[in-house]
Design a protein around this nucleic acid. Sequence first.
DNA 1: CAAGATTGAGAGGTCAATCTTC
DNA 2: GAAGATTGACCTCTCAATCTTG
Lengths: 164, 164
Amino acid sequence: MSTRERPEPDAFSPTEFAAWRGMLRVHATVTRELERRLAEAGGLSLSDYALLITLVGAPGRRLSMSELARRMLLHPSRITRVVGRLEQEGLVARQADESDARSVQAVLTSKGLEQVRVAQITHHAAVRELYLARLTEAERHTLGGLLEKAMPGVVSSEVWPPYE
Amino acid sequence: MSTRERPEPDAFSPTEFAAWRGMLRVHATVTRELERRLAEAGGLSLSDYALLITLVGAPGRRLSMSELARRMLLHPSRITRVVGRLEQEGLVARQADESDARSVQAVLTSKGLEQVRVAQITHHAAVRELYLARLTEAERHTLGGLLEKAMPGVVSSEVWPPYE
DNA sequence: CAAGATTGAGAGGTCAATCTTC
DNA sequence: GAAGATTGACCTCTCAATCTTG
């Protein structure tokens, strides 16, 4: 057989491999553990937390479903269901948009704000312990800069890329 | 209301934020597009590809189910189902382990090898275009090094962390 | 009893189709 | 016709429970 002798035609170089594999494995490991700790601490899933924290940063603590989808890099249908669950739990409320009857606004409730603040302690502590703690300030700066350079706009802009 | 005035108790610094958000967004964006291109090109999903490429690198192009789970940082039950599907498509075969009757080996078939080689072209091209192309060799080296430093062992070792 | 593998249940995510409003 | 939202179908993934073998 000659298949064993012929290596990949376009194999990753060691640095390509490290930069790619590192991202995949760090992401998988941190998000899995983070999910576990958030659930244990307050019953929020990571996607619940992400949605709530997105709302916290928005003017009026409210955003339309489609804007939420764009900012979270998620498919609109996903937003429908997460908001549905969070609404049942009283953490967000749906509100009609006066200026556009097609649009639905998700508004953070005071209970939602309370809960995201509590979850944030757990969240930040976990991200720091698992991922950030072993890096110096300068290294974190470099890392963020490299990611932004690798995919300009993905990191820095609110919305990228849109589902269109 | 005083809630608007009080910011987070332990907010991320700008560098923490960039390093964390960057990873999340780059990962989400690249893997989603990669999944699309792989499916379009040859019908393999990203998890199919990941399993096959893991087998390619193993001695004898074979690995037990549990070893596969450890290397891929996946739950064993996931492996059962992916191997099940790939077996039906003739890309891997299940084989009994002579030295341990509990163990099942997944072996890459020649058809599987063929297909992963084809998929690899698409995969590597996409990862380069979407993620690696805008970085210099030195920057990729730095990026890989920072990820390894952030989570020692996660990037470099085959197996971390185990499901236990 | 511990380890390897599998099953059923359920959450997270996408896509295509649909409905309503612009 | 296009945009916003939702629904149904399906894939990815984890967890708890089970079965078998060491």
